[in-house]
Design a binder for these strands. Structure first.
Length: 129
DNA sequence: CTTCTCACA
DNA sequence: TGTGAGGA
């Protein structure tokens, strides 16, 4: 299920195709790039090459604009999304830490079980893990 | 022919 | 945001 995302990330569309797909002018597409939104890759000839994900981003921006949101507003939405992703990454690290703690506890109980075996005590710990 | 950057009667 | 110039 990851090959699909990889393909959507491939930058193979020239600005002309993106214009038709998004119904946006080249001026607008380039302007949004200057504003830090939807930055395409550049080919060997300095030509902008967009991915399907880029097109989706452009379409999303287009929607926000149609809903009466200006560039500044869209920038705020962008910043908020970055903060959310940053927060998620921190939670991921905490989750990994918890996993490590569980692994360590499991090994401890396993070791204890090898020496003395109070079935009741072990079962209680196993439930928590 | 398509796209790029820059600038504005 | 549109448009035209001048180059690639």
């Amino acid at each position: 299920m990851k090959e699909k995302e990889l393909r959507r990330s491939l930058s193979v569309l020239p600005i002309g195709t993106v214009m038709k797909l998004t119904d946006l002018s080249a001026r607008q597409i380039r302007y949004y790039e200057q504003q830090g939104l939807v930055i395409p890759e550049r080919n060997e000839g300095n030509r902008r090459m967009y991915s399907l994900n880029n097109v989706d981003q452009l379409l999303e921006i287009k929607d926000y604009l149609s809903e009466g949101i200006n560039m500044a507003g869209i920038r705020h939405i962008y910043e908020q999304q970055k903060e959310r992703e940053h927060a998620k990454q921190e939670q991921m690290q905490k989750s990994l830490t918890d996993t490590d703690v569980r692994r360590i506890l499991r090994e401890e109980i396993k070791a204890v079980g090898g020496l003395a075996d109070r079935a009741d005590k072990l079962s209680v710990h196993k439930k928590k893990l």
